[in-house]
Each structure stands twice: as structure tokens, then as C-alpha cells.
Design a protein around this nucleic acid. Structure first.
Lengths: 299, 299
DNA sequence: AATCATTATTCCACCAATGGGACAATTCCA
DNA sequence: TGGAATTGTCCCATTGGTGGAATAATGATT
């Protein structure tokens, strides 16, 4: 059996302190423990390390040889602790984040800039692939996804954002197909739908305050990229349902305009998913905090 | 509080094994312990080291940083153990021995040669000062002394040799002063006495089998070196009492001859004194074994 | 020389860590 | 698709180690 490195560490401390009692004071341990542990270590190694008198401790030359290794152990444990403490104060390392492309482009660009400036020691690796990634297997620290969250017990999902998509279309399209006055009118329109990952069709369950209405329509086109969806709507392909935030720039420039204002699609929730509930790396915690701060503005 | 190096070592083992179960098998520990200890370590360091799924373990980049130090600790403990095991097989280091000059010259020269040849890794430091040395304070591994042994509880004395001094004188001296036929005759002779360390006079309590006789004489000369004593006797200064072994060479060459053959002085015991009762360094144990082997020949 | 202060060791009641088992979850295999 | 095997975590009775106090012993001091 290999010796307990903790005992070797204690041995180093005893030698440094020069006596059992001083080592006990520094280590916050009773002298009895030190005495017992050292004896056990000697027993295990099969040779004495220290010759002890009540007044003096002298190293065996075997003890001197072992002491070198014991000091190394002491130094390495201290290094490990220092590493941890440094982490506690300044986030560092590599942060691997995966999030939808549009989410990053429309909402997170300034936030990412701020994060990079505030924590220069963290290297951010941003993945914008739309598909879900295996958080742990692929080594991601954080994954942001819209809609359905993965029910993985080892993962923790945190609600970071939500929105109720509104309906938007290009003025040219509305001039040609007419402006709907009620959800029921949508049955005669071309609807552009965001393709859910699960592949099942999205129901257009519209609501306006307490009032609800679900037109019996099928989407004419489904894409898995909100940005592409908006671009298609801009080209006059139909009516799109998406977040007001995403549509904002096109609304301002007049390339899109609201349809059935006040009516909203069901709430979509954005989740931040990360492994484990506690002991989150500081870099991740910092990212989440900054994320929430920015999203509370964008709400 | 600094982390427990034993936990860091376990962490390294888990990473090497690739799973908790395999690490448990190798370490002869239950998986529950490994799981708990690793969690405790993470708790203490404040950040996760391993992301665990039932099927895969992946290192955090913090974990990767800590792992380096953990591996060092593993290596150092192994080195310490190897050191001990190597000691078990091949004595090494420095052996500090103190013994009387004459004891070394007449009895131990071949034994020391044999020891040096058999254990080349041991550097022997031989002290031939006649006075008693403080075993522990001066760092001696072994002290050989003739006569009274120190009653020190922390020291262990082992009887290694004993002899009954005989009487010897130079032929020239005997021709001049006459050959004693009975111990009582010694009262008219010059007696050369070995100076005891305590300084008190040595009584010439002669015995021959069961017969005892103590001539009322005082030594004319006292020296604390048996060899010098013999040399003085050789010069015809008087009758000396010393070990037959010490006198052997001079008896063979005829420079000395026995006086009152059969009569002997009281037994003198030689002691080997060393610190502690068990866990004797192998170099010391080897020395003692060889010592006893040689002295059993010289008896 | 004798006493005192200091130090390492020993003893024993007690507590915390252990480890065997059950459990939940996941991946592999048919 | 469904079981089977494997894996990490949790639970709780049990044990080994802990730590406070007494003991033995040593070196300095008066």
C-alpha cells in the first residue's frame, strides 16, 4: 500500500516547525494526532524518519531523503489550492458556449463584447450550430436553447428569457394579399413557420389578452432559422411569427410591418443549460450574470 | 484550509482509471468513498473537476490544471515509497558509528572492510574518540562501548561481546622483576591499568575458575587506551591486563608473554547502543548482524 | 543537585468517515 | 423497442481515527 500523502505532508510540517507542538499549532491539530500519524507513517515505510527526544528532533538521513518528496507534496497541494483561489477571484480558462445564431446576433453581440472586455483571461468559444449539442460529451460549459428544454437530470436549465412572437409581413405582401383583421383571416394567408427541432408542426394558437383563437392553418414554409424566416417575409413570401426583438430593425426601416397587432403566439422560453447545479465555474457564473443583466434590458 | 493531498491523489487515480469503479478496484476502495471524497474536494476547491455521466467522465479545464499537481503528488508519494522499499533491499545513506579505537583496530578492521564491500551505498563515518558521545544529539546511528552501559531509556543496548582480560608483560620486564607465581606476588609489581571513564580506580579482582584473589595494589600507570597500554607493556613498563585478542599479535611475535596464565580479570562486556527499539534503519541492522557474525568468530 | 517548565507519547470516550447495499439513470445489445 | 448491464450517488449502521487530558521524560534554571 502506498503511504498516505497527507502523512508525508504532516511530516514536512513537523520538520519545518521543528517540534510537534508548533506544528500542531500551525496545522490546527492536536499533538497526539501528529505523533500517531508520524508513527504510523514510519511503521508503513519501515524505518524511522525522526529521532525524537522531548527537547530535540533530529532527522534520520532516510528522513532527509523522504523530506524532499514530502516538501514537493506540500508545494503541490499549495499550488492546487492557489489555482482554485485564483479561479475564485478572476475567471479564466476557456468558456465553450453554444447558442442559436440569431440569438447571438440580435441580442448578445454587445454582451459578448462586454464579457470579453471584463474577463480578458477567458477565451470564449462560441458555437452557433442550430442543432442541440451534447453538453457534457462535447465539453460545453453553457448551452442556450429556445423552446423545449432537454429534461436531463444531470443538467440544470435556467429560464433566461421569454417572448411572445408577434406576426409580421412585408408591406408589399399585405398590399397584395390584404391585411387580416382577425386571426380567422389567416386561413387565407401564407404562413411562414419556424421549424421546431422535434419536427412536429407548430400550432398557431394566437392570443390577445384573455382572448384566444387558433386558426386551422398549416405553415406554407418552415425553416429552422429565424433570421432566414424574416428575410423570406421581407421578400413578401408571407406572414411570419417571431420575436419583436428580432423583427425590430426591419420594422423601423419599414421593410416589415406588424400584422394583427396585439395578437401574440404562445410564449417561447429561452433556457440556459449547464451541467451540475452548484460549483459552477466562475467564468460560467459571470457569463450567466452578464447574460441576465443584458436580457433584462432587452425585455 | 489546504486541500487533502490524499484526495488529490484519488482524483488523479480516477482520471487515470477513466471511471470510478475501475479506480475503486485499483485502489481497493468502495466507489462510494471515491465519489464522496471527490465531491468534497470539489467543494473545497470551489469548482468542479470532473463532469460525470454514468458512462463518461470528462475533465473540466480547471480539472486539467489541478490534475497536473495531482499527478505530481502521486509521483512523489510513489517516490517516497520506492525510497523505503529500496532501503529495505539495499542499505544506503550514511552510517555514523562510534567505537573505541582499539576495538576497531583489532577486531573490526576486516568486518568494516566486509561491510563496505557488501553495502557500497553506505558511507561509514567512524568515530574513534574514547569518550562517550551523545547518541541522538550528535546523530550517531550506533555506538559501541566497553564496560558500563548508559542507562538511557530511549536507547537500546545490545550485548555484543565480552571477554575476561588476561595479564601480560614483556619478557625483558619479567626477567628483571621476576615471574609472579600467585596473584599475591603482584603487590611487588608495576601494574598498568586501563583508565575507566568514571575515573575511579579499577580493582584487580583476579579469578581462576572458582578461585578468587584481589591483591592490594594500586596501578602505577593508567591510560585510557588499551593499545597504548600494550605498547607501554611492550617497552617493559609493567604488567598489563587486557583482552587476549588485543594482545594476540604481540604474544605471537614474543614481544609479550602471559603472566599468571589461567588467572583472569572480571568480565568486561561490550555493548552496542542505538536509539529506539524497533524500526532500526537497515544499514544499522546490517552492521549489527555483521558485527555479531565477526565477533562470534573472535570469541 | 534539585526543581520546574516544556515536550512527545499514551490512553480512552466519542465522533465522523467508511463501505456495503439500494437506487436512479444511462448506454449497450438483442 | 425493451431489457440488461454498468455506473455514480445516496443512505445508514459500524468502525477506525480523532482529540483532550494524563503520563513520562528531558533539558534548563535556580
Amino acid at each position: 500500500m502506498t503511504p498516505d500523502p497527507a502523512d508525508l505532508l504532516l511530516f514536512a510540517r513537523i520538520v519545518e516547525a521543528g517540534s510537534f507542538v508548533r506544528a500542531a499549532e500551525r496545522s490546527q491539530l492536536p499533538t497526539s494526532t501528529l505523533s500517531r500519524r508520524l508513527s504510523a507513517l514510519e511503521e508503513q515505510l519501515g524505518e524511522r524518519l525522526l529521532l525524537r527526544t522531548t527537547r530535540t528532533l533530529t532527522l534520520t538521513d532516510f528522513g532527509a531523503a523522504v523530506l524532499e518528496h514530502a516538501r514537493q507534496i506540500e508545494q503541490e497541494t499549495a499550488a492546487a489550492q492557489a489555482l482554485a483561489e485564483h479561479r475564485q477571484q478572476a475567471p479564466s480558462g476557456t468558456l465553450r458556449v453554444s447558442m442559436p445564431n440569431d440569438f447571438a446576433a440580435h441580442l448578445l453581440a454587445p454582451m459578448l463584447a462586454e464579457y470579453g472586455q471584463r474577463y480578458p483571461e477567458v477565451q470564449v468559444l462560441l458555437d452557433l450550430s442550430p442543432g442541440r449539442v451534447d453538453l457534457i460529451a462535447e465539453g460545453y460549459d453553457l448551452v442556450i436553447r429556445m423552446g423545449a428544454l432537454p429534461d436531463d437530470a444531470s443538467l440544470v436549465a435556467r429560464r433566461i428569457w421569454n417572448y411572445c412572437p408577434g406576426l409580421y409581413a412585408a408591406p408589399a405582401y399585405l398590399a397584395q394579399a390584404g391585411i387580416p383583421a382577425h386571426p380567422a383571416d389567416l386561413e387565407h394567408h401564407r404562413l411562414l413557420c419556424l421549424l421546431a427541432r422535434s419536427g412536429d408542426p407548430v400550432s398557431w394558437e394566437l392570443q390577445f389578452g384573455e382572448e384566444r383563437y387558433t386558426p386551422q392553418v398549416a405553415a406554407r414554409l418552415a425553416v429552422n432559422s429565424p433570421d432566414m424566416l424574416l428575410r423570406l417575409a421581407e421578400q413578401g413570401l408571407g406572414i411570419v411569427g417571431c420575436s419583436p426583438v428580432f423583427a425590430a430593425s426591419r420594422l423601423e426601416s419599414g421593410r416589415l410591418q406588424p400584422v394583427l397587432p396585439g395578437w401574440r403566439l404562445p410564449m417561447v422560453t429561452g433556457w440556459a443549460v449547464y451541467p451540475g447545479r452548484r460549483l459552477l465555474p466562475l467564468k460560467t457564473r459571470a457569463f450567466l450574470e452578464l447574460l441576465e443583466a443584458f436580457l433584462s434590458f432587452a425585455r
